[in-house]
Design a binder for these strands. Sequence first.
RNA 1: GCGCCCGUAGCUCAGCCGGACAGAGCAACGGCCUUCUAAGCCGUGGGUCGCAGGUUCGAAUCCUGCCGGGCGUGCCA
Length: 543
Amino acid sequence: MTIKQELSNLIKEAILKLPLKEQDVPEIIIEKPRHKTHGDFATNAAFLLAKKLRASPYQISNKIVELLPTDSFVLEKVEIAGGGFINLFLTPSRFHQVLPQIEAEDTLFGTSKTKEGRVLVEFVSANPTGPLHIGHGRGAVYGDCLANIMTAVGYQVEREYYINDVGNQMQSLGRSLLIRYKQLQGDNVPLPENAYQGAYLIQLAKTLPAGAEDKGLDFFVQLAKEEILKEIRDDLARLGVKFNRWFSEESLYASGRVDETIRLLKQKSYAYEKDDAWWLASSGFGDDKDRVLVRETNVPTYLAGDIAYHRDKYDRGCDLLIDIWGADHHGYVDRMKAACAALDHNPDSLVILLYQLVNLLRDGKQVNMSTREGEFVTLKEVVDEVGPDAARFFFLMRDHNSHLDFDLELAKRHSTDNPVYYVQYAHARICSILREAAARKIEPLPAKKCQLNLLTVDNELEILTELAALPDDIINCANTFQVHHLTLYLQDLAALFHHYYNHNRIISQDRPLSLARLAMVNSIRIVIRNVLHLLGISAPEKM
RNA sequence: GCGCCCGUAGCUCAGCCGGACAGAGCAACGGCCUUCUAAGCCGUGGGUCGCAGGUUCGAAUCCUGCCGGGCGUGCCA
């Protein structure tokens, strides 16, 4: 049980003795106050009860405090302040308990089994018509990390990439490659404006032997698709982004799942015919207007395929579908949710998370990212320049709803202002201390055998609080889908450690003290490493 | 026009299911290396939380309107 859960239970038991019925007890929120003088934790429970009990928060707080157990090993002191806040001060020994726990759970510390169910995270899903750009990188890392977090709280998680390998774009891609090939053969064929302009097709065309044009357009389509997909897989692998499955849109057509889904919608009368096309009655489910499912040419739209795909995910037994899209697709959210509702699925079981655009900067100045003529900065270029660790950390630093400035020079800098190094350095520093202890023949003891009551100086208890907060923080991330809290958590923890290191000797002549401090520092190491791994970032032992 | 996101210190942002004096990093200025990694630490200054109303015992946080920035608004994918 986490400290917060423990405190929450204590408060709740007291409230029930007020007396109050179970259903009238508000959700007890235990928060960490901004100021130390307000306790290690605090709750505003009395404010929430004031109306119901027709008493002032101050009076209610007094009653609650009277009803708290006096023989608790957790609470050292309880105060009422700020007109009704209950400020809770913990015994040092409660803080110390976290160290043996971290040691015992080791790589699992921070994880919990608080959630259950099958979650499918679909992300990236970029069209295989060109290299991934930096925006895809943000979505990739966000999705990968969110999947890690969902796994860490107990969900059974699958990660998928939906390949849009159907439609005009693939034909256009094949034609573009064919033209590039002909140009290389000396033919003076112009590349149409609507063709794919990127230089990557020239590179690919160069690998083709003479006479390749005899193999027909379809050969070029398939080749371009496969080669580009291979590059995409390589780029994502380089970034440490993992998928369980690459789901081909084409396979949905081949298996008849698209037609079947359209038939089903017709049966339910959620699809109707108008102007020689078939429409989804999505406006009945909150969309602005109805959407075409099957064109007057009798070819299904992208939407039809995507609905079949989502239906497939549900049919495979997933309880929660998470889609991660770039913000430029937000206009698509309502129709997708409408489609799921039309298929009798609870719209809340489809969560669509949008991430905002990435601004690429170099020393504070915007890097030109014109997508015209394919002149964008590719993900590969960025990862090659700053490395996967820095790239991932930077992509994860901000709320996905906020625009992200990605400064290439900052990401490479080896100094305090670069948060990646700041955090990794804390980890390496601790490893170095542990090596030094070994060199001095100081054999570390398990935390429970150390005199942990020696850990009460400076910010030691603050560090322990921070360590203990991790499981709750991860659960919070899973609930809100806000991954960036973990990068902030790491920066806070690293700052606490660096401060501590600069003001206190860990290894000293005082052996019991050294052992206790080594135990604490080792727990910090475990926690930093675990969180970095959740973020998919390495935890170097030397820097 | 309509829809979504953002608007907090010079810069980049956190805080936003309402709560106690609004936080951090960077930048600026000034300190700290014969002792476990100075890729570090300490100190100083810096804010009408875009504007105007409303709800509330209490609003950066909720509601309405406005202003500014970004994105979207295909029988493309």
